[in-house]
Design a protein around this nucleic acid. Structure first.
Length: 280
DNA sequence: GGGATTTGACCTCA
DNA sequence: TGAGGTCAAATCCC
């Protein structure tokens, strides 16, 4: 997520963002690399340990690191794009009216960015998308609430940035399971920009491992929920648009999820809601 | 003991 | 007035 600097910290004439086509090309290349890394990981999984002289785990760890790096780059690029779109649309909005909705599409999917007012009239940027990997967005989230939602069989989970206190980051994330597909899809709502600037950085000092913080920087989570399509959410329009079918990389990841647990623990015959860290 | 999650209560808004 | 969002004490886990 691109960091939005306070006015006083912004340079008078910020450098223009890279041309859109160049960025698209970069995103495409990174997506490809990420997909390939995922495939490689799946292939490595199929090779018996003994055939690699006990070095399969090392190789897997390396591929995971590679995939993570690619994913973080992808995420950073896409976040930059989203902010760019938002800034561009802000002037056309007259302020207090119905929430303006800006469709933001990228190489791997699309999101809806809404603008609405917060509790105290402050402007909130709200991005809604559907994804099968809600935990995988590169940020450090701390859960602060959970709620049953009317007419929904799944509970809504509330997260705020893990650095909300120490870095005054106002970013929040709401996750609600949408269905019992395999893998299940989640509606993820992001509000406010991250100001903590901690994508894939700053290993948390906490030694706690039972955390359900959606922390992609933690090896315990990143290894089991590693995913190549970070930032490639499945498009879901607010007003029931057709949802594209899950792409090849998603299917590959589903296979990996089965191998690594988490989604693999999901029993399709007796679906259970996702609790933020996997199914019990 | 410290950090994170859980969960019921409370607050706000439509 | 009810639903959704947040708070904060209790609890859990390392």
């Amino acid at each position: 997520m691109a960091r939005r600097l306070p006015k006083s910290e912004r340079s008078p004439s910020p450098p223009p963002p890279p041309p859109g086509d160049q960025r698209d090309a970069a995103i495409q290349e990174l997506s490809k690399g990420s997909e390939l890394a995922t495939q490689l990981m799946a292939q490595l999984e199929l090779i018996p340990e003994r055939e690699l002289d006990g070095r399969r785990d090392d190789a897997l760890a390396n591929v995971r690191s590679l995939s993570m790096s690619l994913s973080s780059s992808l995420y950073a690029l896409r976040s930059e794009r989203r902010e760019h779109y938002y800034c561009g649309s802000s002037s056309s909005s007259g302020g207090a009216g119905p929430a303006a909705v800006t469709s933001v599409s990228g190489a791997g999917g699309a999101r809806k960015t809404k603008r609405r007012r917060g509790k105290h009239g402050e402007e909130l940027i709200e991005t809604v998308f559907i994804t099968t990997t809600p935990e995988n967005d590169g940020f450090h989230w701390r859960k602060y609430g959970e709620k049953n939602i009317l007419n929904s069989e799944f509970r809504k989970l509330y997260y705020r940035c893990g650095y909300s206190d120490e870095r005054k980051c106002q970013a929040k994330k709401y996750v609600q399971q949408e269905n019992n597909k395999h893998p299940p899809e989640f509606r993820v709502t992001l509000t406010n920009e991250h100001t903590c600037n901690t994508v894939f950085q700053d290993q948390p000092s906490s030694s706690s491992t039972n955390s359900q913080v959606l922390d992609f920087t933690k090896a315990s989570i990143s290894s089991s929920l590693m995913d190549s399509h970070v930032g490639t959410p499945i498009l879901k329009e607010e007003e029931e648009e057709e949802v594209p079918s899950i792409d090849e990389s998603t299917r590959i990841m589903s296979t990996i999820m089965r191998n690594y647990g988490s989604y693999g623990d999901y029993d399709e015959s007796s679906p259970q809601p996702w609790n933020g860290a996997g199914w019990k």
